[in-house]
Design a protein around this nucleic acid. Sequence first.
DNA 1: CCTGAAACCTGTCTGC
DNA 2: TGCAGACAGGTTTCAG
Length: 275
Amino acid sequence: MPELPEVETIARSLQSGGRGQVPISGKVISSAKLTWPRTLAEPGKNTFLKRLLGQRVEEVSRRGKFIVIRMDKDYLLIHLRMSGDLRVEVEAEAQLQPHDRLAIHFTDGYRLFFNDTRKFGRVWLVSDPQRILGGLGPEPLDGALTAEDFHIRLASRKRQLKPLLLDQTFMAGLGNIYTDEALHIAGLHPLRRSDLLSSDKASKLLGVIREVLLEGIRNNGASIDWVYRGGDFQNHFRVYQRTGKPCPACGTPIQRILVGQRSSHFCPVCQELTD
DNA sequence: CCTGAAACCTGTCTGC
DNA sequence: TGCAGACAGGTTTCAG
């Protein structure tokens, strides 16, 4: 499900509340239940359950599409992949729901549930988060990433734009929705080659990526289908899942093609392959 | 290095 | 109605 804005929304709600969530910082873990063992990337189940006990949650943040839970001894890293979600409930109301894969119990009676219909999500318990997160590309919203840097990074590869933007080692956080939306606003075809973009176009693209991500965060992310409720960005899609509907800029019907096995939605007039 | 296909999963929707 | 097939927010791995 989630891309950067959805993961950011979830991380913020666990850190500071909001979205009907109770913050978990300061809570101490008293036990945990793993109902789908493959959810655990590392360490093994027994070590995981033992090492979690007694750890105090210090801070919840985000890196790329990972939720980063810093505790007093270790880090809990959670990747929601396609259908994962997190929720906090008080003990009196807390019940295992269908597709709950992991429940973490706190000493004050609250519980954190990891729910993941499609079972693609993964959890790591590590002392050094960089070992897992170190390969990620820059954060798109990090001001340290300049337009010039971005242009150089684009030019150093010979890739189709769409798959390159989805590559988390190139840039961390973009997924199928926000990439399609950004390419549309930037007026760039998803199959355009990365190394042939002018520095103006590259600069424009970075600016648009930031706009779209910030718009997503402002709307608490996008809620589609049965997964992840509470977001509103799905009502602002310009091209994503709007095949055949008019382009908001020129009225031409939106087209859908497969690029790297992912649906890509674009306007054939606003996003010409050649320019 | 780049691209495409397959795999990992469950659920929903469409068309015959 | 039933059932096959396509498709869904992501990533990894392998073949060419």
